[in-house]
Amino acid sequence: MITLQEYLTVAALLFSLGLLIVLFRNNAISILMGIELMLNAANINFVAFSQSLGGLAGQVFALFVIVAAAAEAAVAIAIIVLMYQNLGTTDVEKAKNLNG
């Protein structure tokens, strides 16, 4: 039997890995991948709590997180492609037109 704490440990490690990718990488698509990892860590937490507390509310919540992640990825890819067309790069450090 796998306890709740083990699932939460995996989710915590996955979350901090995603955060590290978001902070470390410059490329916008890499950052998007890090965000997907963080959302997946949240989903693992939801499903683990749903399993240990009983009921299905956590799984329904995870479903909504997946829907939001799909929408977010579509909009983010559109923004990244437009950024490439306008600036010629997907490096987020170079996108500083509003820097003043």
Partner: peptide, 22 residues
């Protein structure tokens, strides 16, 4: 991991939406 936690529907959705879509 979802399958291991007994959330088989969510695992199928994960494969369909994340792996197949995103």
């Amino acid at each position: 991991l979802f399958i291991l936690m007994g959330a088989d529907f969510l695992a199928a959705l994960q494969v369909l939406i994340y792996v197949g879509g995103i």
